[in-house]
């Protein structure tokens, strides 16, 4: 074991009971403010198909540079909330799961190949996929969720994933970072492809 890992190993027995307690607490995600917030917050971040696409949006924004990197976190939550509203209202949308999986492939490839699409086209591509993601969240939400708490949790969860993608995307400022970002895009495309093929 490397010296850097030793403190971690020493604190592991202490952390284990806390981790088990956390798992028990997480099981109670029912009604009420806390249940609504936890439910809303966890929806965007617990599904890998959602996570990779939202991170990819941030990464692509970084590849495109200014102003895309800042416009995307402004536009994406709005469009995604619109998609979620369609889902909550029961408005049908065809091929939602396919659209979500496809978003990982397309956005991942856009990052991997460093596609420098014009901003309006990038916004439309991202917006269309955001509707699919939002719709899935809207149809899957629990009936008893507190609306305000759910909404706050949902938007925060989405926003934080986005910010994570942008933060990773800031690595493009350095040559080695650009390689890392493009590799991450490739990985995202592979994950999206696995969902598209039904093997994930």
């Amino acid at each position: 074991m490397t010296p850097a890992l030793r403190p971690m190993a020493r604190s592991l027995p202490l952390a284990l009971p806390l981790m088990l307690l956390a798992a028990a607490a997480q099981a109670h995600t029912g009604a009420g403010h806390a249940g609504g917030f936890v439910s809303g917050f966890s929806h965007p971040i617990l599904g890998w198909d959602h996570v990779v696409a939202m991170v990819a949006v941030g990464l692509w924004g970084a590849v495109l540079g200014k102003p895309a990197i800042w416009i995307l976190p402004v536009v994406f939550p709005l469009v995604m909330a619109f998609g979620a509203a369609l889902g909550i209202l029961g408005v049908p949308l065809p091929a939602v799961e396919t659209g979500i999986a496809l978003s990982g492939v397309v956005l991942g490839l856009a990052v991997a190949l460093a596609v420098r699409a014009p901003l309006p086209i990038a916004a439309v591509v991202v917006g269309v996929f955001a509707i699919f993601h939002g719709h899935a969240h809207g149809t899957e939400l629990p009936a008893a969720a507190n609306p305000l708490a759910y909404g706050v949790g949902f938007v925060l969860g989405t926003g934080l994933l986005h910010m994570a993608g942008i933060a990773l995307g800031l690595l493009t400022a350095k040559p080695a970072g650009r390689i890392v970002v493009r590799l991450a895009g490739g990985l995202i495309a592979v994950v999206g492809g696995a969902f598209l093929a039904g093997i994930a």
């Binding site: 976190p73 939550p77 709005l78 619109f82 909550i88 209202l89 305000l148 909404g151």
Partner: peptide
């Protein structure tokens, strides 16, 4: 400020959907 407005609008859209549903 724009991000705050966007997030508030997103929460409001979700709440409106809940109210209409």
């Amino acid at each position: 400020l724009r991000i705050a407005a966007s997030w508030l609008a997103a929460i409001l859209i979700l709440m409106l959907a809940f109210v209409l549903a």
